[in-house]
Amino acid sequence: MTTLAHLRSATFQWPGGRGIRNINLEIEAGHWLTLLGPNGAGKSTILRLLAGQIAVDDGELLLFDNPPNDDARRHIGVVFQEPTTDDLMTVRETLDLHARLFGLSRSQRAARIEQLLAELAIEDRAHDACATLSGGLRRRLDLARALLHQPQLILLDEPTLALDPTSAEAIWSRLRQLRDEGCAVVVGTNDTAEAEANSDAIVFIDDGSIVAHGAPTELTAALRSDSIELDWPSCSPDRLTELAHLDGLGALRHAPPTLHLTVDRAASFVPALFQRWGDEIETIRIRESSLRDAWFQTVGRPLNAEVDP
């Protein structure tokens, strides 16, 4: 498999202090890699490094076997977290501008724009001003813009944020197709369901560092079938020792006031739990174990928690 991008011990720090540390990644053709982490974890920074927008402070980045340069961006498509449309331009003008920036000839532009407008089902809005587009249509336009020059590497930062399920699925579906055609897809998200459904590999990023990396099945392999999340402020070390002796318990992670457990069968485990300590437990959440639980077990807090700057 062809490796399109390497990050080796990459470090970058923003002026405010946030950034990434010692990141090692390989991006391969025909592969879907998801960067999973809370807001502020460093996903966007990694994507911006891969897009050649910023340079590593330390370590190494190779894009297409070379240090980043302007020309490498000919092979990279980027969809940013926020829409990047100009309200004064029409959909077709937007695509035409970017196609010209990527050096497409007049005939190539016309053909490619028609093709993408049709593929992403926005051809009937081609002459409308971007100001009139819904959020979903703007995201589709962003994706069309990123695909104009037929990139080998597609970088997407929360591409379906705040989209309705139909619009989101239209984007995921097109991205899966591109991956199957040999493109490398790198997505930054904090949505575990999306990550689990589409990724070949997932990287957990927390506070600027990679804390886990593997296929979705590898990351969830250590989990038992059900997960239980308890709000249990008075849970003491003694309680944890006692809990560890209960039958069917898998992983246990205590991040006060939350206690996260994976168990073989919640239906038999929970009655035993409440029989002993039901008066101390304030809330319980039970679900089938998923990537979300792998995150909690790895990091020690739920994925939706913001990282302090």
Partner: peptide, 18 residues
């Protein structure tokens, strides 16, 4: 500034031009 606020500037800067 409008391009910076709308994100258009970012989109321009990921083109293969300095």
């Amino acid at each position: 500034y409008r391009d910076r606020e709308t994100g258009m500037l970012q989109a321009l800067l990921v083109s293969p031009h300095s």
